[in-house]
Simulated scan of single mutants.
Amino acid sequence: MLHLLEVDAARGRAIADQLLGHCVTFCNDLRMHHLREDGAYTAIQKTHPGLAPALDRLRREHETVSRALLDLDALLQGGGDLDAVREKFERVAAGLEEHFAYEEANLLPELRGSGVPAAPVTPSG
């Protein structure tokens, strides 16, 4: 019986290690994406100064996302309990969905030339 518990523990650790590997890759890729976007926002702001408030908000959100991803990574590195990891992951995912919705609603119409933003997306809760 002890052997079965050891096998289950090893499987659990292997799954956690896989999750950690995927998270590290995703988190690094997302941080690089946001760094590139921040650079693009500088150019966009020069040609579309009316977007400055939205671009400023998106830059601030990039910083918030980066901190949240670092916190999630620390939880995974530290072997955080599953409930804490799940809760942090769900908060990060919800924040990213909100961020992407705001970005699309507030930047795309102007960049596509319609100049009419979609209904503003505001933070929930």
Rank of each mutant, 00 (worst) to 15 (best):
R86I: 08
R11C: 05
L30A: 02
P120K: 08
A9G: 07
D83K: 15
K46I: 11
L58F: 00
H62M: 04
T64Y: 03
D29V: 08
T25G: 04
P53H: 06
S124Y: 00
D71G: 04
N28Y: 05
D56H: 07
L70F: 10
A10D: 11
R13Y: 13
E103S: 03
I15E: 15
M32R: 12
L4Q: 15
L35Y: 02
L111W: 02
L30P: 01
D29E: 13
H3K: 15
N28Q: 15
R31N: 09
G78F: 06
Q77D: 02
G50K: 12
E90K: 13
L69F: 06
K88Q: 14
R11N: 10
S114Y: 06
V116R: 15
L55C: 08
G113D: 03
L108C: 04
T42R: 12
A101R: 10
F100H: 10
L58Q: 05
T25I: 09
R67M: 11
E6Q: 12
C27V: 07
D81P: 09
P120D: 04
P109K: 05
I15S: 12
A43D: 06
D73P: 01
Q77R: 15
A52W: 00
L20D: 07
G79K: 02
A84E: 05
G21T: 12
A93M: 10
L96Q: 08
N28S: 14
E98L: 12
